[in-house]
Design a protein around this nucleic acid. Structure first.
Lengths: 134, 134
DNA sequence: TTGCTATAGTTCGCATTACGATATAAGCGC
DNA sequence: GCGCTTATATCGTAATGCGAACTATAGCAA
């Protein structure tokens, strides 16, 4: 499972990988804030935007964000208040709540996501080199 | 800078990449806790272990962890109390404090780092596929 | 119909955590 | 001495996700 014992280079690769991850997350946080969003907002909007119909159930969203449902509810509350998402009760099962990204939400992440893609493209050679050295 | 406008697949790739990052971080947190450490402890120990002589100045450690120096000081305090790191004043410049991983610290991360490498090896094809699709 | 159980979402209070601001102390070079 | 750097200490703050408990809806069984 763990494979051969790790040598110095392995530790370096693991540490550098983590460092680059921290840098990417930091980049993402700053980019979100510069766009008037919180980092969490961006992650919700991105997840919804990537969903087939731009909407997800609260529970499914929680699973994708690795959050508890009630934490997701609070996050959605804030986003709804900002007009970035909308809640729609499912007609067939009124327990279910669809969280849909709004037009404003789409507009908000368009350039933000583009910046993230650009950053990942920049990081790509380094990440591939690091992954390849493990 | 931002390149061509993003299509649905681009958003999917970005969202899935973030999801996998969250999963890796979650894995790391749980692995650290299972080893009797906090996630922060693991990151410090890994960073020190990857350093040439197993030691770093507080300021350099802060830079690598993307923390403020005083936050790093508190983190080091807790680690020192647990016997996982040691402080050594530099003989040439007594302002500087080298934070060195202890034998106990090394022992603590040996199998933990191995599990991380195994997890990253498992994730590697997926991450490369995602990076390649951007 | 009644009752039990499960699911989906929400509400409330709490604990964690790194931070900003600020201060202190000590050591270095000029 | 003076200015700069490095590390440490302290205090309050603000955000954020969690556990526990709650409501509402749905499904099922006798």
């Amino acid at each position: 499972m763990a494979g051969d014992p790790l040598c110095d280079r392995d530790y370096e690769a693991l540490a550098t990988f983590r460092y680059e991850l921290r840098r990417f997350v930091r980049f993402s946080e700053e980019a979100a804030i510069a766009a008037g969003l919180t980092p969490q907002h961006y992650q919700v909007l991105l997840t919804l935007r990537a969903s087939p119909d731009g909407a997800m159930l609260v529970g499914a969203l929680a699973g994708r964000l690795l959050l508890r449902p009630h934490s997701t509810t609070e996050l959605v509350n804030r986003l709804e208040k900002l007009g970035l998402v909308e809640r729609h009760h499912a007609p067939d099962d009124r327990r279910k709540v669809h969280v849909a990204i709004s037009a404003q939400g789409r507009a908000a992440i368009t350039s933000l996501a583009a910046h993230h893609r650009a950053e990942l493209r920049r990081m790509r050679p380094m990440l591939e080199r690091l992954l390849g050295s493990m």
